[in-house]
Amino acid sequence: MEILDKLKEKFEILQSQEKREDLALVGTTEKDLIPLLVYLKEYEGYKTLVMISCVDWIEEGKFELVYNLWNPSKKHNILVKTKIPREAPKFQTIYKIWPQAEAYEREIHEMFGVDFEGNPTQHEELILEDWDDIPPMRRDFDTLKYSMEKFGEREPKSGIIIRKQISEQYDEWRRK
């Protein structure tokens, strides 16, 4: 696709894929991401930031930030991805390019703990008031354990009867 070729010339592109007719995907380095976003906005007509999301690649020790841009005149979406370290995750804010990024970054900060330097409101609570644990969307957060400890349950479940229990129960019964 034309736009992908153009980007490849100008930036360091780690992965690129044409997902659908109206959706393309590029992966780039941490350093090139903001210039790439600015370039797409200023020169290629990707004027709208649809959303920002985050993926936890716990095995690699990385968070992946995904910026979803929309070109209203060409009716085309592009996903721009980059990976940042999972330990003390830090990235620059883009709220000066798109003001709506402020809320998305605030949410990612809350759910994943990514620090967007320069975002003025990211430390305010969005959904989780009085949160007291590691950010809940991280994959090493045990949500069931947290829920049981904090909110309790009415009657502890004996759980699924595991296979060996069935034959043990049978053997016990037979011995009687």
């Binding site: 479940k157 004996s158 759980g159 699924i160 009867i161 069935i166 129960q169 049978y170 019964w173």
Partner: peptide, 20 residues
Amino acid sequence: EAIDMVPVEGIEPKKGDSGF
């Protein structure tokens, strides 16, 4: 996890039936 298997009075485990 709404369902758990419990022993029921009057039903004994046998081959092919866990009794739960």
